[in-house]
Write a protein that binds this DNA or RNA. Structure first.
Lengths: 263, 263
DNA sequence: GCCGCGCAAG
DNA sequence: CTTGCGCGGC
């Protein structure tokens, strides 16, 4: 069994202790982090080394974005896409070399897209859709067993948000985003493991805004995903959301997901 | 017995827990804080209330400077000088109403004075000397038993710094500052309680720069002071520097002083 | 080095 | 609300 996790950590330096706690408690074989918000030279390698995660692919950037895949299983970094050629560190791809040998694990942080869901008024929204378009063309050519995980910044199903109707005009749940993400899904036949294991319309949130009184209310959205190639999906054996991290001190706005595979 | 303390806390909000710990450990009757770095509306009143310091005079300012005198003994705020009429919150004066009745406690934060010890090249240096001049003219008229405490930002004696010769051209220990502070002392006949109880040339530092490796070396200066009217000085019974606060997590660059009075 | 601020981003 | 940053102040 190989277990793989994903977590938007919102600064890996500020939450190195929380990552360590998560690794100790849940002991995933592989952890994909997003929004590490640091260059590789300041990545807390020692923390991961001490925890047994000796294999790491870090694609960092100063202050913003940044992804890292850390692993107890040997791995080889195979790609570091900059789909929009703008220098933003939003992807790193690895190939597992030990247990799970041959599996490709793609770790991605899709742009949030700004506040206004309009390509003209808000260039960031256009950039988000463009980013998905480029991922779609890339996905059409994939021919290896692959798992893609990360913060997609889109809640595709009606039940992926606390109030579907209210959020139709809120970036992350607009019809155009859901449609564009659907094209990406179809380009490879990706299987949404979150919904394979926790079928709609069950509650399945992964993110709560810092801006709301989110400790009291439950205004969550499912923005984080683990999607598998069809073959790989048949090997998935379990999937969990580790929501308890929200109760920790100064938590990330995202919680981790874990999937186990019979590999 | 009445005990009175002074401490430049360098942000009272960030170190509210350290102030609480200090109050619990040392239990002074009165504590004068400098560099609270907040407006009164964000002052952590609840922390002091819970610790038994129900009487408070807070002269705050947004982001910079700011002083506060908190007390277990009833007090009355009597003055809030803005000697340079520039809006900087650098003073608050109170009168004790319970034990120690009638004693005036002046809490002051003298300007640091910038980096270059030259009135022309550095207006902040001139401002510091001018501030002292105005305090001097004020002190000439004092006619009540008074204690003045706070961060004076001047180390007057040769033995008040780790290297007298090296610091003669460093703001805080230049001859013109020492001379100007001497005029303030003479204007009221203030007695330096720090040196009454810990005579020169004994080590008696109250501040260590954040910029040096001050955990290893001992490059301190005596910038914080408690000065009393001659009568009041005869009632002082003990004086301590609570240097252990430097070992606490994320300490202030200053340590507290405490004097006990037979009042 | 350590602070608060105002900014941009989420 | 929370992050990192660049700034100015100490």
């Amino acid at each position: 069994m190989v277990s793989i996790a994903t977590w938007n950590i919102n600064s890996v330096r500020l939450r190195a202790d929380q990552v360590e706690r998560f690794l100790r408690q849940e002991a995933p074989d592989v952890l994909c982090l997003q929004e590490i918000k640091t260059e590789e030279k300041h990545f807390p390698h020692a923390v991961f080394e001490a925890a047994g995660y000796a294999h790491r692919a870090v694609h960092g950037q100063k202050g913003y974005h940044g992804v890292a895949t850390v692993s107890r299983i040997p791995l080889r970094e195979v790609s570091r896409h900059d789909w929009q050629d703008n220098g933003e560190a939003r992807h790193v791809g690895v190939e597992l070399l030990g247990p799970g040998q041959g599996l490709i694990v793609e770790n991605v942080y899709i742009p949030a897209g700004g506040d206004i869901p309009d390509r003209e008024a808000n260039p960031k929204f256009g950039q988000k859709l463009d980013f998905l378009g480029r991922m779609t063309r890339w996905a059409e050519a994939l021919d290896r067993p692959t798992l893609i995980v990360g913060d997609f910044n889109i809640a595709p199903l009606d039940c992926d948000v606390y109030d579907h109707k209210a959020l139709l005009k809120v970036v992350s749940h607009t019809p155009i985003e859901v449609e564009t993400l659907g094209q990406f899904r179809d380009a490879h036949g990706w299987v949404d493991l979150g919904r394979q294991f926790i079928p709609a319309p069950q509650r399945n949130y992964s993110w709560w805004s810092y801006r709301s009184y989110w400790r009291d209310k439950d205004q969550g959205r499912r923005l984080d995903h683990m999607w598998a190639s069809p073959d790989v999906a048949t090997q998935a054996r379990g999937h969990r959301i580790v929501e308890e991290t929200r109760k920790w001190d100064q938590p990330s706005d995202h919680v981790p997901l874990i999937t186990e595979f019979d590999l």
